[in-house]
Design a protein around this nucleic acid. Structure first.
Lengths: 334, 334
DNA sequence: ACGCATCATGCAACCGGTTGCAGAAAATTA
DNA sequence: TAATTTTCTGCAACCGGTTGCATGATGCGT
């Protein structure tokens, strides 16, 4: 049913090669035949089949976009940027939604079966096994929002979570908070672990500063609300919390308001990500900005350059974060 | 580099056909050769190339998932359900992010170049031209969250927006509101138009009921907040508003609280969708539940059955909605 | 107008699979 | 055991393109 190369060749009265070449950048065709072919193609509504050509060229322009994070509104922003960024470069995102406990090998198999030109892991909570598995099957892979390491075995683009933890602790101490708490995301996530290390390092070194911590079950509103509810019901409530991320923070804020406490008077909250919702007036969250747009652009550029240079030496691209001042932390006493 | 059918055939000492057949459901192969092939395949780590086989079978198992809605958190839930639903049925979502003013034909071309087996339009704000364009190029297409019509030319799965509008108005009238307002989404969206027709119909027929309306620029928090800000600054504020959707409602709530008015005492709000955020305690939005999970399941089933039956007569699958009572509307005076 | 370099074109093989067909092997029946 | 049916198997053509190579056409210089 669909119109093929051959149909165009027949109508234009040229060989199939001629048709192929007029649709191939930089191939040698005379203006005369090109015109004939283009006329015939337009008449028939022909466009080359990307999959068929991939067979010989080895390029599908398909990029696997893999995530397990479909409950954090931040990821809608992330998917938006990724899909637009890929499309702008003529690439197509093949989306893979990984659920808890999914087999790593099955995912890799799936993407290799569709011969994707590359894969992007968009998650800070995905097991490092995933990246390793892709690496072993020679699919160019970059792990966006992955763990910063001095000697990464796979390309990483993201932030220094540990530095963010330190920044959060320093900020809280500077504001005069004496008992600072870390309410992390899932303990198994490397991002959580690193953020914890960062806050703990600074908070424990602080003069007359007390430090406590706990972990929520996921990076989600419900998990944040539940964990903060538990904390508030306990004995040892902190003056201010660094929450694992913004959506956790928003859950925590909900629990705090439900308990009839006020923010930032009774309890201060600082989040991480600076997602769109953080600036909604009824949330107005003080948070650490993560430059997702740069991270995503850089990830795409990296995966593109790996397509031409598969053995490229793995690098970690780390972007700086900064505090965004809003309403959930006491002001600097100055 | 990647291992092919031929490699397996050589190692197993059989013909390429034999290998192909062992990987084809229901093909005729003896247990003996199947065993030989499977052993060789396992040894080499072989899996058939889905794209190459699509060339002869005409099936790619690729489904275009098309949306223009990457700023409404509801769509993260929607993408989650779509991707999981497709994956469960062995299909792969090829995501297409349509921006304002993008060329319809370019989108169609893109998906036909990748010979997708079908396409799902997930949006209530996409121009109907899109569906028409897919239809004309013989790609099975279903429009999820599309406009209900008695004689649709393309498959529609969604809700009866007009009925929802009526339901909202009836609810507001029953609660004793005397001036009811409709704060719609973008006026160009068919969903907005229909919701408007519904509320207007009932509200204008109400005894002693006043009805006013206006439209926000988009289905987004900012648009809702801005539009409600404008309304509150004007002369003719309603007692209760039916907002175009939940995220608009949340924006509106923000504006109302900023103006130091209280909900539901000063102003009532009812949304539409029942997105996850609507049940967050600090939002607690009374809203009309749209059964997205059923809509999505049904959409996928429909596109799958169209793959086998391309000329299937277009149908509209409409799912009922219901009110979810939370905290942004006065209770029934009973 | 002639010789030569350059460009354009078609042929045919190939990418990684699938499948109709005919003959071989195995299973069934008598 | 022979005849007959059924199940397997390999060959070769095909899906929709691309590309190296040899040949033919064109343009250039003189």
């Amino acid at each position: 049913m669909p119109v093929t190369l051959k149909d165009v060749a027949v109508l234009a009265g040229v060989s199939r090669s001629a048709v192929s070449r007029t649709f191939t950048e930089g191939a040698s065709v005379s203006n005369k035949t090109r015109a004939k072919v283009e006329k015939a193609a337009a008449e028939l509504g022909y466009f080359p089949n990307a999959l068929a050509s991939s067979l010989t060229t080895g390029r599908t322009k398909l990029i696997g976009l893999i995530s397990n994070n479909f409950h954090n509104p931040l990821f809608l922003e992330i998917f938006d940027l990724f899909t637009r960024g890929l499309q702008d470069r003529g690439l197509r995102p093949l989306l893979l939604n990984i659920a808890e406990g999914d087999d790593v090998r099955a995912s890799v198999r799936l993407l290799t079966q569709y011969s994707v030109d590359g894969a992007i892991l968009a998650s800070s909570t995905l097991s490092p096994d995933f990246a390793q598995a892709f690496l072993q099957s020679n699919v160019p892979v970059v792990h966006s929002f992955g763990r910063f390491a001095n000697a990464p075995s796979v390309h990483i683009v993201g932030i220094d979570n540990r530095a963010c933890g330190r920044m959060a602790a320093e900020t809280l101490i500077a504001r005069g908070y004496k008992h600072i708490g870390f309410m992390g995301g899932p303990e198994s996530a490397t991002s959580t672990q690193d953020r914890f290390l960062g806050v703990a390092e600074v908070a424990r070194a602080g003069q007359g500063v007390k430090f406590t911590h706990s972990f929520a079950e996921a990076y989600s509103f419900d998990a944040g609300r539940d964990e903060m509810g538990r904390l508030l019901a306990g004995q040892d409530v902190a003056d201010a919390y660094f929450c694992g991320d913004d959506v956790l923070s928003i859950g925590a804020l909900s629990a705090i308001r439900t308990a009839n406490l006020s923010v930032p008077e009774d309890i201060g909250i600082i989040g991480l990500n600076d997602m769109e919702m953080a600036r909604w007036e009824n949330i107005n969250l003080t948070t650490i900005h993560q430059p997702i747009s740069q991270i995503i652009d850089s990830s795409i550029d990296l995966v593109v350059s790996m397509m031409d240079e598969p053995q490229r030496y793995p690098e970690a691209r780390i972007f700086p974060c900064h505090i965004v001042e809003r309403g959930t932390l006491k002001r600097l006493a100055s």
